[in-house]
Amino acid sequence: MSNLALKTATPPWSDDGELEALTFDIAGETFALEAAIVREILDLMPETKVPGSRPFVSAVINFRGKVIPLADIRVALGVEPAAATIDSRIVVVEMDLDGVESLVGLRTDKVNEVTTLSRAASEPPPRVGMKWPPEFIECLIKREGEFIIFPDLRAIFASTRRAV
């Protein structure tokens, strides 16, 4: 377990310090996730509310015959929910939940591109001055005068579970 945690604790940079990543927008900020864990990008589809569940994972969807949870990172980051737009997409990622490989859908406002990020441009999140809780952020990657946020999905999912 600790091994796994270590492995995903930093973005898995390749030997020459690069990473294939998918970038997407949530609440006006650009985020990136390693492309390797992304299974599919879906248009919005009918979702089924799960009464009694936490707002963070309030619904499930039918992803290719599997029932997978739909998570809203906004809730974890403490941002107001926003209405879906024509650009809204669901990014299906594969991740380890308590030792079980699971598929989880993430709500995003817009999916941008798959790009190569460079380790040289990355820096740890500042302790203060962020509107996001720093423990949920792996690192910031500077690109074209902007910061791309690399979130720590493991920490986000773990914290929302503890909160219950």
């Binding site: 039918n62 997978i68 989880v104």
Partner: peptide, 27 residues
């Protein structure tokens, strides 16, 4: 019957989910 993910462990009202003929999910 499809099982629910670990993220819904805390929801005790449902044992699982199923997919209806129109592709939507029912609990």
């Amino acid at each position: 019957i499809k099982s629910m993910s670990k993220l819904h462990d805390d929801v005790t009202t449902f044992t699982g989910a199923t997919i209806l003929g129109d592709g939507s999910v029912a609990l």
